[in-house]
């Protein structure tokens, strides 16, 4: 297996407006891949397109060298927290069990085995003590860990996370990034939509710079460069040089 996701000349438009323009890339496996770009760059649209949730104008998408419709079981998705109604009458363990649904036939109910697997994954993210809590009673970081547990219990090889660090305190962010690294080290590939440039170098193996078109994609140290970032952010950045002339700092306006 050489590539996790292979996208060939993908274009997507929403209500007649171009959201993604002629995207082509081939992503490696077993990496933490960051998707970076300004608001409206089409980051969420790209992962939704890869998962086959938005109609594409043109282009071809392969996941592990197969069409997406045959690989749905292998793809897990962690939603943006703002998309979830946290008043919903559902307990933490019920949320995690939902990750077993792709493995069940349409008439089947989650079995004892499915519930045990859910509990194991809750232990992996360190949330087993909260299993009987209503999902809204947790902090933002804890909620995020529960959704990661749900992705784990799905036993998929490819994970998409939409802004997992949005609205989360720093210590929770540390816990979550360590978790994502652990998942990568188990041999999985993770795509993470991210809007904050400050931790990029520390977090990701590969980086994708997106602004409707693909500005750059490759190893993090090759892509995280002032000129490419400036291009992705339409020039709305300032580059600062450190005094010894060695280091550079990029500030996005």
């Amino acid at each position: 297996m050489t590539s996790s996701v292979k996208v060939d000349h993908l274009s997507v438009s929403y209500h007649g407006e171009m959201a993604l323009d002629n995207i082509t890339f081939e992503a490696p496996t077993q990496e933490l891949i960051g998707i970076i770009g300004p608001n409206g760059a089409g980051k969420s649209t790209l992962i939704k397109a890869i998962m086959g949730m938005v109609p594409k104008n043109q282009g071809d998408i392969k996941v592990f060298d197969q069409s997406v419709s045959r690989m749905r079981q292998k793809i897990a998705y962690v939603p943006q927290r703002s998309m979830i109604d946290f008043d919903f009458p559902v307990l933490v363990e019920d949320v995690v069990v939902m990750g077993r649904y792709p493995h069940l036939k349409w008439w089947q109910r989650p079995s004892k085995k499915d519930r045990d697997k859910a509990l194991e994954c809750l232990e992996q993210v360190g949330m087993e003590d909260f299993r009987r809590r209503q999902i809204g009673e947790l902090s933002g970081g804890q909620q995020q860990r529960v959704f990661i547990a749900r992705a784990l219990v799905q036993e998929s090889d490819l994970l998409f996370l939409d802004e997992p660090f949005a609205g989360i305190d720093l210590s929770s962010e540390q816990i979550i990034i360590n978790l994502l690294r652990k998942i990568r080290n188990q041999g999985k590939t993770l795509f993470v939509v991210h809007h904050d440039l400050s931790k990029v170098e520390e977090y990701f193996d590969s980086l994708m710079l997106l602004n409707q078109r693909l500005v750059g994609f490759g190893a993090q140290e090759d892509v995280f460069k002032p000129q490419l970032i400036s291009e992705a952010y339409n020039g709305n950045i300032a580059t600062l040089h450190s005094e010894d002339g060695d280091g550079q700092m990029v500030v996005v306006k």
């Binding site: 939704k48 998962m51 949730m53 419709s69 749905r72 079981q73 793809i75 998705y77 939603p79 998309m83 979830i84 109604d85 919903f88 559902v90 949320v95 939902m98 649904y101 792709p102 069940l104 349409w106 109910r109 989650p110």
Partner: peptide
């Protein structure tokens, strides 16, 4: 029930798993 629960709670994941 299972389908109703998931599509109500998290429509995006519901769509993602088909």
């Amino acid at each position: 029930y299972k389908q109703l629960l998931l599509s109500t709670f998290d429509p995006t994941m519901a769509k993602a798993i088909g």
